[in-house]
Amino acid sequence: MLDIAEVAERTGLAPSALRFYEKKGLLSSSGRNGLRRTYEPEVLHRLELINCARRAGFSIAEISRFLVATPGDDALRARMVEKVAELDEDIARLQRMRHSLEHASTCTHEPLVECPEFKQALRS
């Protein structure tokens, strides 16, 4: 068993975030050790999933639905397809920015932001 402070330390989340996730139904504690909530070690895996989904732009409500989804949840599957397209766009944008910054790190054009190759990479 892990108490709330241990879970917070291992995940980098504030205890208040863990309590919030519990209130929203994303987590459940397995009891208390004195005044502190306790969790099964598997909570760390669930929090990795929640963190990944949050960073991908899913809302708390969407994550909640995802955690209880069944193969027949067509609306959720459609949302996942939309999210894949959004993530593909984000990845492409970030790759363009990465390429632009990589070029700018060695470019001798003055000023750097006026470099034609830098501008082209951003436009692509």
Rank of each mutant, 00 (worst) to 15 (best):
D3A: 06
I4C: 08
I4A: 09
A5K: 12
V7E: 04
V7C: 05
E9S: 10
E9I: 01
R10L: 15
R10M: 13
R10P: 08
T11C: 03
T11Q: 03
G12V: 09
G12Y: 09
G12A: 07
G12T: 12
G12K: 04
L13T: 03
L13I: 08
P15A: 11
S16T: 13
A17D: 03
L18Q: 09
R19I: 14
R19L: 11
R19M: 14
F20D: 04
K23C: 02
G25P: 06
G25V: 04
L27Q: 10
S29D: 05
R32D: 06
N33M: 07
G34S: 13
G34T: 10
G34N: 11
L35P: 00
R37F: 07
T38Q: 11
T38S: 14
T38E: 12
Y39P: 13
P41G: 13
P41H: 13
E42I: 10
E42D: 14
L44S: 13
H45L: 11
H45F: 09
R46C: 01
L47P: 10
I50S: 00
I50P: 00
N51C: 10
C52V: 03
A53L: 15
R54K: 15
R55D: 10
R55T: 12
A56L: 15
A56C: 12
G57C: 07
G57L: 06
G57A: 06
F58D: 02
A61D: 15
A61T: 12
E62T: 12
E62S: 14
E62L: 06
I63T: 07
I63L: 03
S64K: 15
R65F: 04
F66V: 08
V68C: 10
V68H: 14
V68W: 00
A69T: 07
A69N: 00
T70Y: 00
P71N: 07
P71E: 13
G72E: 13
D73V: 04
D73Y: 09
D73C: 07
D74M: 02
A75D: 13
A75F: 00
A75N: 09
R77T: 11
R77F: 13
R77G: 03
R77V: 09
A78D: 09
R79T: 09
R79H: 10
M80E: 02
M80F: 14
E82G: 08
K83S: 02
K83W: 00
V84L: 11
V84H: 01
A85G: 03
A85T: 09
E86G: 01
E86A: 11
L87K: 04
L87Y: 04
D88V: 05
D88G: 06
I91L: 11
I91V: 15
A92K: 06
A92H: 07
L94F: 06
R96F: 00
H99A: 15
H99S: 14
A104W: 05
S105R: 09
T106W: 12
C107L: 06
L112W: 08
L112M: 08
V113Y: 02
V113M: 05
V113C: 04
C115G: 08
C115D: 01
C115I: 04
P116M: 03
E117F: 03
E117I: 14
F118S: 01
K119C: 01
Q120M: 01
Q120S: 13
Q120Y: 03
A121Q: 07
L122M: 14
R123N: 08
S124Y: 01
